[in-house]
Design a binder for these strands. Structure first.
Length: 359
DNA sequence: TCTGGGGTCCTAGGACCC
DNA sequence: TCTGGGGTCCTAGGACCC
């Protein structure tokens, strides 16, 4: 029997801030894009539980959050710091895993099938992990335990905050059946509406549906839906996972149609992307820009180079060329982004830093 | 209420080659 | 002269997740 844990950190960004700012503990606090550079156009990235009591949620516009609760503590995000904390978190989870897969900055799967032979073993492991997380790192987490990734993930949602939830294989179907289709992993806003339109309100409705009909309606996705709804997921905890793309995007403090401002920002973001490529030892072949206009209309334009490159200047040059060729002239832009993809390991010259480190 | 930034995966048409 | 099918790459866009 496979036994899989999904460890999900509770209100991670704010929890990280609490580590260095104990004064905010117990008070409503959120991490949200610093309103100064973005003109307050950001959203709440994370809200702690006291803030959630007032209805503050991640994804909520900061302007709205501010209207709801003025004396909330607002903190600009500090990704470098969260990454540092995240590395410690992941190292800790790894110790408990026979196979480990990081899902995001604050979430990871641990396949524990070798060291745990029963549900009791898995639960005991989860309890120890959670205890160590609190004692060693001072961070709360929630853990879902089950026999596959999908159900472990769904169980962790039920475990929040600060809990552990086991769903046995035999109970998976019933565990899922009462939940709304939109709660199923992989079903978002759009698909949730479509499914409800067809009369599938709960995950149980989907589970009971004729799979042939689902495939007729949704092709291969329909088959996947039917499996998920029935708690079936054969996918493995994936150890070796490679980055597919690296990008940066930024929202202007004020919408702009100023080419020079756009070009400057493309330059800055390209430099950051180039640094990230260097850190990871990767070269790219494709450059894609994203333009979001004032009305939220978004377009992507990309170009594939004839060669691999590691050069930030080249990213910037191609980005600005794409912009000049395709941007609607005079239209106000809200946001721009640049991303490189088609990445390969680059075994070229070492960076100065590596030389300095004697690597 | 007015909407961020980091990603992944999938689809689909057209070009091009065999 | 008219007619295939498969494979791969390129480009654009959409949905989804955290």
């Amino acid at each position: 029997m496979r036994l899989i844990l999904l460890v999900d950190m509770d209100y991670f960004f704010v929890a990280c801030e609490e580590l260095r700012r104990p004064d905010i503990k117990g008070k409503p606090a959120v991490v949200g894009s610093d309103p100064r550079p973005t003109g307050g156009r950001g959203v709440v990235m994370t809200a702690n539980y006291p803030a959630r009591k007032f209805g503050l949620r991640s994804g909520m516009p900061l302007s709205l959050a501010y209207r709801i609760k003025k004396d909330t503590i607002y903190m600009p995000e500090d990704f470098e710091y969260y990454e540092q904390v995240s590395r410690k978190v992941m190292d800790l989870i790894k110790k408990y895993a026979d196979r480990f897969e990081q899902v995001s900055i604050d979430e990871a799967f641990a396949d524990v099938s070798v060291r745990a032979k029963s549900y009791e073993d898995a639960l005991a492991l989860a309890a120890r992990l959670k205890k160590e997380m609190k004692e060693e790192l001072g961070l709360p987490c929630s853990i879902g335990v089950s026999t596959n990734k999908l159900v472990a993930k769904m169980a962790s949602e039920d475990a929040k905050p600060n809990g552990i939830k086991l769903v046995k294989e035999a109970d998976a179907k019933e565990f899922l059946s009462g939940k709304r289709v939109g709660d199923l992993y992989g079903v978002g806003k759009k698909m949730g509406k479509v499914l409800e339109g067809f009369g599938y309100k709960t995950i149980g409705d989907l589970a009971k549906a004729n799979p042939v009909v689902l495939v007729e309606r949704f092709k291969s996705y329909g088959a996947e839906l039917h499996n998920s709804a029935n708690g079936i997921d054969e996918s493995e905890v994936q150890e070796n996972w490679e980055v597919k793309s690296i990008g940066r995007e930024r929202t202007f403090a004020r919408d702009t149609s100023d080419r020079e401002e756009v070009a400057r920002l493309f330059g800055g973001m390209s430099k950051e992307v180039g640094e990230e490529l260097g850190k990871q030892g990767l070269a790219f072949k494709v450059v894609t820009i994203k333009l979001r206009y004032a009305d939220f209309e978004e377009v992507l334009k990309s170009r594939s180079l004839t060669h691999r490159s590691v050069d930030p200047e080249e990213i910037s040059r191609v980005a600005i060329q794409l912009f000049d060729r395709y941007a609607e002239r005079g239209e106000e832009l809200r946001k721009i982004g640049v991303r490189v993809s088609n990445l390969v390991k680059y075994r070229g010259q070492k960076s100065m830093k590596e030389y300095a480190a004697g690597g």
